[in-house]
Amino acid sequence: MGTTQLETAPEPKYWHLKTVLSEALDSEFAVGEILPNERELAARFGVARATLRQALEQLELEGRLQRRRGVGTTVAPPRVGVAVDPARHTWPGAPGDDWQPVDAVESSEVPAAVARLLELTPGERVHIVHRSRVTHGQPVAAEQLYVPVRTVPDAAVTGTDAPARARAVLRALQQRELEGQDRAVELGSARADDARELDRLPGAPVLVVTTRYFTDGRTAAVALSTYRADTCRLTFGDNESEAGVPVLAG
């Protein structure tokens, strides 16, 4: 393959290398193809392996590469467009919602940030509904939906198995009048549970969408949805043909 020396550039060396590697991915490699090992790549581009790793990590973050256990680093397919709010004025679980309920538990232990958003009092109990989302046969997101018992009383939650309890919480939630919702998107790192469900390594880059649902003038529920940053392109609007806002599109 020969050796390609990088020209002196004002930007960090790994960033210039990332650009060169990206061009090589477009011209020399097919989707799913395994890249040469780090030693070979570092020799080809005349850089230290630490510089190469920085460039590879950036390309993984941008969705150009995938690192898979037991396989190596492969060229990633184009990102899948995932609509974040196809049903903007409905509760979770309403018709058209393609999330699948997995389980539901009741607890007084919730993340501090969620407790603040819900304005929980110490010891106040919350239904935690776990849901998953699959697109084109691959897991793309995991969600924890937090619903205070004051919003959905215990009596409304029935079911002999975990998915049934989750569906019961969602049905009870849909009986309330939804006054509005808002969303925020930020880059994060996969927690162990989310990484396992999404077939990623712990600490892998993810996109976290926080959604607040309002009724009776206060926050009635909060959803933390964790999307794979390497395979997802989040879209906003009823469909991808609208002028939405793609997040980290590759």
Rank of each mutant, 00 (worst) to 15 (best):
R44F: 06
R44M: 07
R44Q: 08
F45N: 02
V47H: 02
V47L: 01
A48Y: 12
A48H: 08
A48R: 09
A48L: 06
R49T: 15
R49E: 13
A50G: 02
T51I: 14
T51D: 04
T51S: 05
T51K: 01
L52R: 09
L52I: 07
L52N: 02
Q54V: 14
A55Y: 00
A55V: 03
L56F: 07
L56I: 14
E57M: 08
E57T: 12
E57K: 13
Q58Y: 13
Q58F: 13
L59N: 05
L59M: 06
E60Y: 01
E60I: 05
E60C: 01
L61P: 02
L61T: 12
E62V: 06
E62P: 00
E62H: 13
G63L: 02
G63D: 00
G63C: 06
R64K: 14
L65C: 07
L65R: 05
L65T: 02
L65M: 11
Q66E: 07
Q66D: 14
R68E: 08
R68G: 08
R68D: 01
R69N: 01
R69K: 07
G70R: 09
V71N: 02
V71F: 05
G72L: 10
G72M: 05
T73F: 00
T73K: 00
T73V: 09
T74G: 08
T74F: 03
T74E: 09
V75P: 11
V75H: 14
V75T: 08
A76K: 03
A76E: 10
A76M: 06
A76L: 11
A76Y: 04
P77L: 03
P78A: 10
P78V: 11
R79S: 05
R79A: 06
V80S: 14
V80I: 15
V80E: 10
V80H: 14
G81E: 12
G81F: 13
G81Y: 15
A83P: 15
A83T: 07
D85S: 13
D85K: 09
D85I: 03
A87G: 04
R88Y: 15
R88P: 04
R88G: 08
R88D: 08
H89Q: 12
H89A: 13
T90P: 00
W91V: 02
P92L: 01
G93I: 13
G93Q: 09
G93S: 10
G93M: 13
G93V: 14
A94C: 15
A94L: 06
A94P: 03
A94E: 07
P95A: 01
G96S: 03
G96E: 10
G96R: 05
D97V: 10
D98K: 14
D98Q: 15
D98I: 13
D98V: 15
D98C: 12
D98M: 12
D98A: 15
W99V: 00
W99E: 03
W99R: 04
Q100E: 11
P101C: 05
P101W: 10
V102Y: 10
V102D: 12
V102G: 08
